[in-house]
Amino acid sequence: MDIETVKERAGPREFSPGDDLPEEYRKAATRMIEFHANSEIMGAYLERPFIRQAPSIDRKLAFSAKVQDEIGHGQLLYRAAETLGIKTREEMLDDLAEGRGKFLNCFHYPMDGWVETPMIAFFVDGAAMRRQATLRRTSWEPYAHAMDKVCFEEGFHVKHGEDILRTLMNGSRAEQRRTQEAFEEWWPRIIQFFGPTDDKSTHHDFAADVGLKQMTNDELRQAFLDMYVPKARKYGLEIPEYPRVSQNDEGRWVVEEDDLDWDEFFTVAKNNYEPGLGQINGRARAQEAVEWVRDVIEGDGAPAGGRSPQAAD
């Protein structure tokens, strides 16, 4: 199939592993799904200390279950990416360990305390879910199938995050103040979750043309702000002055992009953000430390799938 045919046919769940697809499509889809999978892993890595630090058994259970789900999502997504035949899961995880694999901006920032947990568990997960819901209609069928299960599970994450926020904002004055401070620190990063506005992006959006992406960054950011700004306010959070956000005549939220630090955003995107390197390297060390187990189970140098070439013939 040539790329023009791909663009003509591009529609929800249109392409599956049996199709003969051009490398351009397979590479673009791999890049997108790998990014998504890496983000699940790095999000889980960021949140894992809060399993221990949770202030009740109930929260501890929920945090453990949530981190477990994210690893499960990583498992589904790496598999969906593998079906494109460009990279194996092991290669993608190695790239992530070695600082080549890219992932969401928000998961580069270190987290220090419990009051920060709803910034990820409610706002970032809420944002992610807005995007993920649209990806159930992506053109790569295995990716859409992964999204079915992810979206099924993810509602628990967002509601759990909202419940943490609700408790904090109904807690002591100090809890409320510290939650507001955390919100101010995280808010610009959360807005940047969706990337720069479409008219500023220089490259032609190939992923949209071939049906991998179903909504633009602008549309998703709008949808996020429409839903989550009122929610933040409902719990008594004040929206910071900068970046300026305002409602236009249609009642929709608009962000002054120049108020955001795009140098930092692109530094983060390239894995060069100094404070975030601890997370990339920490996870890499953990992966390397259990390398011996994979060798024991699979045998040294065994090809993926665990079959010798002779047996496969």
């Binding site: 889980a44 890595y45 399993i51 221990r52 981190v67 477990q68 990583g74 994979r294």
Partner: peptide, 18 residues
């Protein structure tokens, strides 16, 4: 729970978390 996001594979991570 210290093994969450640190187990030898994604599958073994899920099992021990459970």
């Amino acid at each position: 729970t210290e093994w969450q996001v640190r187990s030898p594979s994604l599958e073994s991570d899920l099992a021990l978390s459970n």
